[in-house]
Design a protein around this nucleic acid. Sequence first.
DNA 1: CATGTTATGTTATGTTATAACAATCGTCAA
DNA 2: TTGACGATTGTTATAACATAACATAACATG
Lengths: 165, 165
Amino acid sequence: MLTTAFSPHDHSHCITTAINHAQDLCADRSVRLTPVRQRVLELVWHSHQPIGAYELLASLAKEGFNSAPPTVYRALEFLSEQGLLHKLESINAYVGCCNPDTPHQGHFLLCQACNQAQELDSQYITLALKHSAEQHGFEIQSHTIEIVGTCQGCLDKSKAVEYKI
Amino acid sequence: MLTTAFSPHDHSHCITTAINHAQDLCADRSVRLTPVRQRVLELVWHSHQPIGAYELLASLAKEGFNSAPPTVYRALEFLSEQGLLHKLESINAYVGCCNPDTPHQGHFLLCQACNQAQELDSQYITLALKHSAEQHGFEIQSHTIEIVGTCQGCLDKSKAVEYKI
DNA sequence: CATGTTATGTTATGTTATAACAATCGTCAA
DNA sequence: TTGACGATTGTTATAACATAACATAACATG
């Protein structure tokens, strides 16, 4: 079994790492990780679940940031362009990306029980997509791969309940 | 090369077939393909591109149907439950399903040039998803697989233009 | 320090989708 | 054949998600 977002872990460490990483990466690329942008990234990482734009906006408002929609959408756009987060199209929510150095679009496992998301970057899936596209003479530019279901931890919990009955 | 939505074809034939099929299928299942529901399905099929709920609503309004959003969303929900259409999450639009008999969620190729969609049901992709999910002890319930790019026909056209320069 | 560029503020609106409750239609048994 | 029930549709309102357009401010750099 691999380590995933679904497994228990020290999430504050994830956040710190992600933010430091983002700072370095933005410095390298000479783009500005401004206060709003950094704060949005922190909030996205701080949430254990994919988070929506308006929820982010509410948090920003509480903290004294400007709270009109364009503020958060601009930050999300910037972070997305820099590969620092991904949008989950099927639920209109955003998650931090663990591997922003190499541009990519991930494949996601979404648990409907705990509402957490795990990013994958499966070569099997990538190859299968390529293969299917080639069969149709189709040239791939981007993709949305979101798998909804139940994660290991939630399956274990529901089994535990079952046995106690 | 396979035959696809992208290839030229007699689309009115597609529509007729799809509607007849839907009528039979609803009769078999003892569910009601009411006038609005059938009209929405026809409109979805009539469009050569995935179509949005509010565009459907505008067409219904012109034809004297009730034109409040719940009308079209209810019809879409019904048709979706019966497997007669699919929603494309990444563009909030709907397409008819060619194979509504066996419940499934398709894999889609979306051409950004001609805005057409082609449904696939690739065993490669299905197996790759299963494999990745298993690696994480994840139980799949549903998925969203949408591949954006350029279809064969549009690639050919752009190449033709290139050569003429 | 002026000037262009990038980022943010602000107002308004567009787009997609659902909640909640009332009215109507279809069906089928008494 | 009617009345009772569930399914469907009508209606009003609003929630949830996202962008247009233009004004202002911050910044970097020649």
